[in-house]
Write a protein that binds this DNA or RNA. Structure first.
Length: 207
DNA sequence: CACATGATCGCCT
DNA sequence: GGCGATCATGTGG
């Protein structure tokens, strides 16, 4: 696991745009998911700033969502950050080797989150597929389990800057990789920026 | 391009 | 003990 983010993600200066408010991140999870499309995920290591623009996310609706780690109120040390207030980060390990990062939503005690599935590098000449998948996104930005539970609104290492996309540019589909969750796998909770070259998943889910 | 498979280990039952 | 909110690589069309 790389200690530093990919050099291709280095930023000379912070991107334009405003930081999200706590209120925005306490909103219904689907609303937050759409708000995060286009947003910059910023990563700071030492004095160097890195970042990428989020183009694909999935909503996980907590205790009533069979695909969510917090389904039926499950509350363990791993999932605990999902119970924090909106704006915190939840990172977990899947398949023994990849991390996935989520932005927690809703008020404290209500464990919902938005999975960050793909992002675009800041420059057009970079590999568009560098962060095309939740595991690749974490690897490219050097996000690890040790970051789980941090507050994106106050932490120096990770943060967000809003840069909304037009509603008509947003595509919607079923979620990926959760077929074990039965009917919930078909719920339209994946949101993506149409036409982005950084999208993950099969072609049929990119429109 | 579509599909199949192996890697690898923390987490929960 | 079983199984993932995945990825890279391999095969075949």
């Amino acid at each position: 696991m790389p200690a530093r983010p990919s050099a291709a993600l280095a930023l000379a200066a912070p991107p334009a745009g405003r930081s999200p408010t706590r209120e925005l991140l306490l909103a219904p999870t689907v609303e937050v998911a759409r708000s995060l499309l286009g947003s910059w995920l910023l990563r700071r290591v030492g004095s160097q700033l890195y970042g990428a623009r989020i183009v694909e996310v999935e909503a996980y609706l907590g205790v009533e969502d069979p695909a969510a780690h917090s389904f039926a109120g499950r509350r363990t040390a791993r999932v605990e950050p999902m119970y924090a207030a909106g704006g915190h980060l939840y990172v977990f390990l899947v398949y023994g080797m990849h991390c996935c990062a989520n932005v927690v939503t809703r008020e404290e005690g209500r464990p919902e989150a938005v999975l960050l599935r793909a992002a675009e590098p800041p420059r057009a000449d970079a590999d568009a597929k560098l962060l095309s998948g939740p595991g690749k996104l974490c690897r490219a930005l050097a996000i690890a389990r040790g970051h789980s539970g941090l507050d994106l609104l106050t932490d120096r290492r990770l943060g967000l800057v809003l840069d909304p996309v037009a509603p008509e540019a947003v595509g919607i589909s079923r979620r990926i990789g959760i077929d074990y969750a039965g009917d919930a796998a078909a719920w339209p909770l994946r949101f993506y920026v149409r036409g982005s070259r950084a999208l993950s998943g099969p072609r049929a889910l990119r429109e």
